[in-house]
């Protein structure tokens, strides 16, 4: 017996990942998908082949989404992107923060230098850039962790829990250089290079998260021709 319902369930998830979440549009497409499968089965196709053909006719989630997007106004499109993916908003906020950090630090530096109250430069340009980039990096990670946590709350599972445990631990770790110094040596040796350690920690976090994801992907059962979901699209 072909697991049609399971296949349709994973199709629903693919649609959700592409931004066509639960709602009348997805219901309508699903009704259409079922109709096409039935019609093909009636005309003599086997169920697995009928499902594959119906999927191919309907098009991928991204394709459908871009076709749907083309039909609506740009303002509505941006609004929908924000509503469907709250983490986009979170990410945008962090990007703004990174840019804000860069601008305010630059202004501060110039003000102090022009006033002449400091004999040497307060912050070098490269330091300002590094601080801003770190803010961006933390933002990206925060957006990822929040999104993954939300999908875990919706549908808990072991691989997700493991990935979350790693990412939360490393996130907390990153924020305190004192925590890092207790592992990597005396505080004095860490203090001059907090930026370096932060970058190293976040890189380690990404590598571990990637490793967990690759491990999880290997045990995935996929429909014919389907692509495995990206790490941020995992719901189970």
């Amino acid at each position: 017996m072909y697991p049609l319902e399971t296949r349709i369930q994973s199709w629903r998830e693919e649609m959700s990942a592409a931004g066509i979440g639960p709602g009348p549009v997805r219901d309508e497409l699903e009704s259409h998908l079922r109709e096409t499968v039935e019609e093909l089965v009636r005309s003599g196709e086997s169920e697995p082949k009928a499902f594959a053909m119906a999927m191919a006719r309907l098009g991928s989630g991204a394709q459908l989404r871009s076709e749907c997007d083309a039909a609506i106004s740009p303002v509505k499109r941006i609004w929908r992107a924000v509503v469907f993916f709250p983490t986009n908003l979170c990410f945008a906020a962090w990007c703004a923060l990174g840019l804000g950090a860069y601008l305010s630090l630059t202004i501060l530096r110039l003000t102090i230098e022009i006033a002449g109250s400091y004999p040497q430069r307060v912050l070098t340009t490269s330091q300002v850039i590094v601080i801003s980039l770190i803010t961006l990096l933390i933002g990206w990670l925060a957006a990822y962790v929040i999104r993954a946590s939300l999908s875990y709350l919706r549908k808990p599972s072991f691989p997700m829990a493991r990935a979350l445990a790693v990412s939360w631990t490393v996130t907390f770790w990153m924020f305190g250089t004192s925590a890092g110094s207790s592992v990597f040596g005396p505080a004095s040796s860490i203090q001059p290079y907090p930026a370096l350690w932060t970058v190293l920690f976040s890189a380690a976090c990404f590598i571990v998260a990637r490793f967990v994801y690759e491990h999880w992907k290997r045990h995935l059962v996929l429909a014919e021709g389907a692509q495995p979901p990206a790490p941020w699209e995992i719901h189970e």
Binding site: L29, H32, L58, G59, Q63, L64, E67, C68, A70, A71
Partner: peptide, 12 residues
């Protein structure tokens, strides 16, 4: 017609 073309038109 494809579904991706039809449904946006219907919704419009």
């Amino acid at each position: 017609w494809t579904e991706g073309m039809l449904y946006p038109v219907l919704h419009r």
